[in-house]
Design a protein around this nucleic acid. Sequence first.
DNA 1: CCGGTTCTGGTCGATTGGACCATAACTTGC
DNA 2: GCAAGTTATGGTCCAATCGACCAGAACCGG
Lengths: 254, 254
Amino acid sequence: MTTKTTDPGVPPQYDPSRFPAFAVTVDMVILTMSDSRLHVLLVRRGVAPFKGMWAIPGGFKRPTESLYEAAKRELAQETGVDSASLLTQFGAYGNPGRDPRMNVVTVAYLAVLRDVGSVAAGTDAAAAALLPVSEALNGKLELAFDHAQILRDAVERVRIDLELTGIATAFVGPAFTLAELRVVYEAVWGVHLDGANFRRSVVAQDGWVIPTGHRAKPGSTGGKPAELYRAGRMWRRGGPIRHPQSRDTGTGNQ
Amino acid sequence: MTTKTTDPGVPPQYDPSRFPAFAVTVDMVILTMSDSRLHVLLVRRGVAPFKGMWAIPGGFKRPTESLYEAAKRELAQETGVDSASLLTQFGAYGNPGRDPRMNVVTVAYLAVLRDVGSVAAGTDAAAAALLPVSEALNGKLELAFDHAQILRDAVERVRIDLELTGIATAFVGPAFTLAELRVVYEAVWGVHLDGANFRRSVVAQDGWVIPTGHRAKPGSTGGKPAELYRAGRMWRRGGPIRHPQSRDTGTGNQ
DNA sequence: CCGGTTCTGGTCGATTGGACCATAACTTGC
DNA sequence: GCAAGTTATGGTCCAATCGACCAGAACCGG
């Protein structure tokens, strides 16, 4: 519940009218695929604390908006993208001292974008950059606050949602080939998937991808032109592709 | 990030030193198995707003503790249980007006308990009760604030975690039979699982359950005494049992 | 002792997953 | 225009798994 007024064991010093005040912020982990690798949008801090370090974009929640609306507003401000393909809340962070200036609780959202160009255009190019997630998590980049942990949790959430929902189509454009879609799974999971088997699993699912009549033009290296698909409906439970190491006797995934 | 000081597009009215103040609370959905059904601990509100309605227990976060510590402290206060088998954060809720008195953002935790008796003993029996989740979600009980939504999300999280982690052992006691464990899956998912196949899947997993040498004594209806197990280690990805409807062509689970 | 109940191992067919091969349709280079 | 390389896409096949069902073992109550 919101107050402890019904509990007889409530300490008297916690009068609801004198609650401790917090700042509530919304942070967004903005992920996209670039060059067959998972990338995250980070901004460089210009002031103390953590001046010069990379950080996840975010901002204050206003009392008149919901957390989701705050995330959508901040996403539009930071990237210029109005309708995100996907905006999922995945965690709240409130460790004391995570912001040395004040008591801050932040609610973290995961945004999956497909249009890399507009991301770079919407924000200040000097202060923001799309960086590979692997570099941000391997300690090569120093992240401000507890943003390294937030990013780790976001990537873990993507890995899970990739298996549970149709989130993979959020990474690709409105029309895509199955090879593009397969790259999403391979990059996020760090595995190799057979193209033929992947195709079979995906098209066997009823309405997840819908074939457009058209075909993509091959890249510079040639090859048979691939059929173009568009995203169908999503699933709440059980996507078409499942993680290879997560179903056998368990010696590899504990 | 926590402040918008690095973004050139930040509105000037959002000076970090004059952030909007929120109360931050921690609410706990306390679930347990009773009579082969999923139950939730609810407290009855004694004061306005929502006087007389059922609510999820919770309380204010203190600036000196983390969100997890706040949830653990409140859980101990409400139920007397010191070490919860499981305490998972699953969502944050901050819709404007969700508490008519002030701006409140709540972080919701899921607690899975096994000892029903100590739960009822730790809190005031007149104001708290273990109620079936089905009744709380079917509109039979009126829940205060947005607690119906929070409870729905908690149950959905349990359903997912049951498939992903070893959360099922948190519902049963320190020594349990495989039939008890199977009841957890059946109650949460609302399905029927074959006992023999369930046993095979569970014992095939390496160290998830560990057989103690002993056997449970049969119930009043007789039957062969079942072997007793204790919980082994948990999994991060891919538990031994998977949801029956979540792996076929998808016509039933969209 | 006997019927009922529960546990536990066995069997078997259908489905699935993954490795591999073959062919189609495009590219570039000569 | 032709050969060689590359990619897409369909086919085949074997092993693993899932789920339904059966049978025996070990307990109850009467």
